[in-house]
Nucleic acid binder design. Structure first.
Lengths: 113, 113
DNA sequence: TCGTATTATGTCGTCATGCGACATGTCGCC
DNA sequence: GGCGACATGTCGCATGACGACATAATACGA
């Protein structure tokens, strides 16, 4: 999909969106994200580890999340935190979806008429 | 992404969703869909022909749209019409997005608190 | 009438991504 | 000691978006 330059908000994949959503209230480590994503999608989406760690790698590369060591934990788990960039991306994506649902509602009503 | 069996509504890609949305009020041929998608996305999404005709082929295969000849037109353009399956898919997808935006709103509020 | 923009449909190769399978190791508990 | 949950990762495959390319009819003005 090609997007105009001044508002080039590429649509997020559902996996990425749910991962960001999971990190929004507080930082989590990988496994906790998997469990949380399953919960917030009402059990609909179960991330495979391939999807999760692949997505996390790309999110780190694009600076939407940062990784830090959880000191308190006995095992050194790698926890992830949203950056302001990541928050902005989520806000933009939410706005995009809202706008689409609005158009969808009116279009489907037209179809009925 | 894995989905539970009883409600296996895979997320639609934005391209597919916009194509279905474009066909919701009335049938259109390929080129008209391209123009309409650009319009309903506020110029944000410009489908390439590769995306469009690839998506149309898959939509035909999954019986979400049907193709028919526009008799009135001088040139025989292939027009596409939504099936009830296609309408159902759009309804499901809209519901999915609404649900995600709701969760997103509450999660982002939590992040601020 | 000639050329050029618009309409219109399609294919191909590449790249990004989701996903299942596999690999590896820890921790708590019976 | 073994077993299930916790935890992190890699690899290969399949799907899909996309730009580039190809082709052709129509419309319209110079």
């Amino acid at each position: 999909m090609r997007h105009v330059a001044d508002q080039h908000s590429e649509p997020l994949t559902e996996a990425v969106f749910l991962i960001l959503l999971s990190l929004a209230p507080e930082p989590k480590h990988g496994y906790a994200i998997m469990k949380d994503v399953e919960e917030i999608s009402n059990g609909r989406v179960k991330l495979s580890t391939g999807t999760l760690y692949g997505a996390l790698r790309r999110l780190l590369e694009s600076k939407w999340i940062v990784r830090f060591a959880e000191k308190e934990a006995s095992r050194d788990r790698q926890a992830y935190r949203l950056t302001s960039n990541g928050q902005a991306a989520m806000t933009a994506e939410t706005a995009r979806m809202k706008s689409l649902t609005r158009v969808a509602a009116s279009r489907m009503a037209e179809g009925q008429a």
